[in-house]
Nucleic acid binder design. Structure first.
Lengths: 339, 339
DNA sequence: GGGCATAATGTTTACGTAAACATCGGTTGG
DNA sequence: CCAACCGATGTTTACGTAAACATTATGCCC
């Protein structure tokens, strides 16, 4: 910066002003400074900037795994939104999803160059641990019901599940089985609850819940068992991968989809339309979730600047889902068996 | 830091020494300082650290999309390796894969808090653009053949493709069709070349190349065409998603896999084992690719520190693949049709 | 016992930037 | 015509840390 100033014959403060687009600089001077910056290849030093400004313009994203579609798509959307706002995104991966790890990550956060954090993870892990967030770091959580303690943004899990179950009931199915995700996932829990509620409200008896772990393989194993249930004509899988495994198991056991059994998924991964048969599923708007996360976190930062100690209001933002009809659901083969 | 020093009654320099684990501090003093740091909730300010030290301990990752398995898995591995080395990872997503975007990203790099960059992208985009990297920022590229200009780490695309083709030939197929990825992907190009070479070397005539765009949907479209080719008994798809679409198309057209047509994929995505039928594919070791990237970039940084102007030696590191045999490949139905 | 390493700690300074305040020349209104 | 004012620019200072150098105390050797 000093070099640029010297070359033009102005003070470094003027260079700073140009560099930050402040007013109060002659057009002529500005042009000269910009030219000098180009000539000397000047780049502002972000460390010094951060030090001076007290902010990094960076959002940290804590997540356990990038192997689930949802996390990745959300992350991608977050990165895009953040970039739009002039913020960078730093990844804070956790080796294992234990409370200790989460705790460690949160305490490391203090020394990390981050203004805010978005946690893509069920907060269970946060709860028990005596996690104290470094002050001044704002948080938004995805996949949680902790709307009273944190700001939460999430897909409307319940709404999506309800739509899925209703769709199957509307087709004439007597009841709907559910292939749920792992117990420690809040999203899985929420989908399962909504499934149960929707059935009950419709006066149907929910069959026993079958549990998977999100993986296609677990869906396959569950599917082998479900194929034996001759009264099972409709299954709502908590994600598309498990639905994929389910389809494979049903196919192996000679149960036609959708003629004999209807299957519906959740997520609408890009491949869902290429399954055998193309999968009817609940589309999640990850892009919107990401956008809202960034929005939430940035508004908190800005608010924090203005009214210093105002207790930020928490709450939950739900992003609606959309049912995507393909070929894996149809009316049941015959009158449902008597109870 | 000053507060901590005051509380203990030492100078801030001593606190700094404790904070950085330097020797020359009495055990007693160290204990007191650590206690004071805990009490006051002291966290070193990373901006000031970065400013003083001249490094951010952060690696930037430039990638166009997180929608391909490979990119995501590589990114995940990079983040993990980096964390192990005490480095953070900052994501630099590109809105669109144009040269202008890439150029923009690279120039922004200069003001970004990043010591090195890993580019997960075909370098074509870099080539034509008069991209000048900010000096002092080291680069490692994935998915490229620019080993002479950049340090490149990649999966052994050619080796994997060769193994895939040989496997099919060994099963007795007369020749192997290829469903390639998009032209602008170096990985796709490399796999296609190896496919062609392997066939030619085996004295076989390569059928016309069919092109997709990595998506399952494009695989499906290609599959509809391939299903018409009655002499097509074996297809090597350049990735698993396209293989998935291919399977669906073949199934719809009544072509049994693997009885009539063998299909092999590339990547070994987690779902591959749950396809119908479970997909034989070429496994990529993304974790290793990520690890090598970080290794490469960090060794450059360290080298750069020691011998200032030494021209870093470029080169290409190839990570081997592994053929995973499942149920989508088998011997051809009959003697291959005469040429 | 005096000189002299050595270990422990303190003091000064600089990293690059930008806010706060200071200066200077020119314009405007009474 | 002068004072108040304004816009353009310069000067000083502080952000939090750590390297370099300075100081003090301790003990050891001849």
């Amino acid at each position: 910066m000093a070099d640029v100033a010297r070359l033009v014959g102005v003070s470094s403060q003027t260079v700073s002003r140009v560099s930050n687009g402040y007013p109060g600089v002659t057009e002529e001077t500005r042009r000269q400074v910009l030219a000098a910056m180009r000539e000397l290849g000047y780049r502002p030093n972000s460390a010094a900037r951060a030090l001076k400004r007290g902010e990094f313009r960076t959002i940290g994203v804590i997540t356990f795994t990038l192997s689930t579609t949802g996390n990745v798509r959300t992350l991608e959307a977050i990165a895009a939104s953040a970039a739009e706002q002039g913020y960078a995104v730093t990844l804070l991966p956790l080796a294992v999803p234990t409370q200790d790890e989460v705790k460690g990550a949160f305490s490391r956060l203090g020394e990390l160059a981050v203004d805010a954090v978005i946690v893509i993870m069920e907060v269970h892990l946060l709860d028990a641990a005596t996690v104290s967030l470094p002050p001044g770091i704002q948080v938004v959580v995805v996949d949680s019901d902790a709307g009273d303690r944190y700001t939460v943004v999430d897909t409307d899990q319940a709404g999506g599940a309800r739509d899925a179950v209703r769709h199957l009931l509307d087709l004439g199915h007597h009841t709907v089985w559910h292939l749920a995700g792992p117990e420690d996932s809040f999203a899985a829990q929420r989908r399962a609850n909504a499934w149960h509620t929707t059935l009950t409200e419709a006066g149907r008896v929910p069959p026993p819940l079958v549990r998977g772990d999100w993986s296609a393989e677990s869906g396959y194993r569950a599917g082998l068992r479900l194929a034996e249930q001759k009264d099972c004509t409709a299954v709502f899988a908590a994600n598309d991968q498990m639905a994929l495994g389910l389809l494979r198991a049903l196919h192996e056991r000679g149960r036609k989809v959708p003629a004999e059994v209807s299957v519906i998924g959740f997520d609408d991964i890009p491949e869902a339309g290429s399954f055998l048969p193309p999968l009817t599923t609940v589309h999640q708007d990850f892009a919107e979730v990401g956008r809202r996360c960034v929005e939430g976190v940035l508004s908190k930062i800005r608010q924090d600047v203005t009214d210093a100690e105002a207790e930020t209001e928490h709450g939950t933002t739900l992003v609606p889902t959309r049912l995507v009809l393909r070929d894996s659901t149809a009316a049941p083969p015959k009158a449902p068996p008597p109870r």
